[in-house]
Simulated scan of single mutants.
Amino acid sequence: MSERRVQIVEVSPRDGLQNEPAELSTGDKLTLIERLVSIGAKRIEVASFVNSRRVPKMADAEAVVAGLPEAPGVEYIGLCLNERGVERAIAGSKASRRGLDQIGCVMVATDSFGIANQGQTVLQGLAANTAMIALAKTAGLSVQVTISGSFGCPFEGPVPEVRVLDIAETLAAAGADEIAFADTIGVGVPAQVTSMVKRARERLGDLPIRVHLHDTRGMGPANAWAAYEAGCRIFDSALGGLGGCPFAPNAKGNVATEELAYLFGRSGIECGIDLDAALAANRWLANTMGKALPSRVGLAGDFIPSQSREHA
C-alpha cells in the first residue's frame, strides 16, 4: 500500500450497533451497509456470529449476510468469537447470494477480560483462535484477528506490551492474515500506539497490521495519526463514532469514519472515503437512530463547505 494511502475498515454495522439502545431492523442495517459502500468503504464488518442472548443486537447475522449487496471490490467481514460462530458464518455465507470474504476473530489480552468477554483465559483463547483460523481457511475464507485490550484492560489495568506482541506472534504463526491491536476501552495514548506498531512491524515482518481505536478519552484521532507515523496503514472506524463493547465497562464509541477521513484527507493522505457522502450518511444514521451521533466532524462538518468549493 502507498505511503500516502490508508485503508479504512468500516465496523459500524457490527461494533457500532452492538451496544446501542436503539434497535435497527435488518433492513436498516442493510441500508447502512449500502450507504457505507456508497461513501467508498472497501472493507465492512457486517455482523457478528455470537450468542444472541448475550448480544441481542446481532441476532440477525444470517439475515444480514443473506441480504448483502453485490458491491464489486468490497470485502465483507463476519466477526466470530468461537468455532461455533465460524461454523455459522461459513454456513450463512454459503447460503447467501454474495457471502462473506473474511472471518474476524477476537483474542483478548488478559484473563479477566477474556473470561468476561468470551469465557476463556489467554491460553484458552490462543487455542480457540488457532482452531478458528484453521476452520475458516479450510472454507476458503481469509482470517484476521483483533487483540482486544491491547492498550489496557477494564479489569486488570495496564497490559504489558510484550505480552500483546507475543500473542500477535503466536497468531501470525497460526496463519492469521492480518493482526489488529485494539484499544477497546479507549485508554491508549500516542506514545503507546507508536511503540506497539513499531515493535509489531519489527516482529511480524510484512504481515498487515491494523489498529482498532476507541475515542473514550478523546485520543482516537491522535492515536490514529501516531499509528500512521509508525507505519500502520489499516484503520477500523465507525460512521458517527458509534460503538462499544457490552462486556467492557465504560467502553465508548469507535473513532469516527468522518474524523479519519478529515484527518487523513487534510493531511494529503488518500483513505478512499468521500467526506461529503459520509456526512450525509451520518445524518441518515442519526435520524434512523433518533439521536445525534458522537462524531465531532459529523456535527461540525468539513472545514470548507461543499458549496464553497464549487465556487472557489
Rank of each mutant, 00 (worst) to 15 (best):
V6Y: 09
E10L: 02
E10P: 08
P21Y: 08
E23T: 15
S25V: 09
S25K: 07
D28S: 12
K29P: 10
G40K: 01
R43C: 13
E45A: 04
R54P: 02
A59D: 12
A61M: 07
V64K: 12
P72C: 08
G78R: 08
L81A: 14
N82H: 11
G85P: 06
V86A: 05
R88K: 12
S96F: 11
G104V: 06
D111Q: 03
Q120W: 08
T121P: 03
G125W: 06
A139G: 08
Q144K: 14
T146H: 13
T146F: 14
I147E: 11
S150K: 03
V159P: 06
D166V: 01
A174G: 10
D183K: 00
V197C: 01
K198L: 13
V211L: 00
T216E: 08
A222Y: 14
W225G: 02
A226E: 03
Y228G: 04
E229C: 11
A230P: 03
G231A: 09
C232G: 05
I234T: 13
L239G: 02
G253R: 00
E259H: 04
A261P: 02
F264V: 01
G265F: 01
G272N: 08
L285F: 01
K291D: 04
V297Q: 03
D302L: 03
D302V: 09
S308N: 15
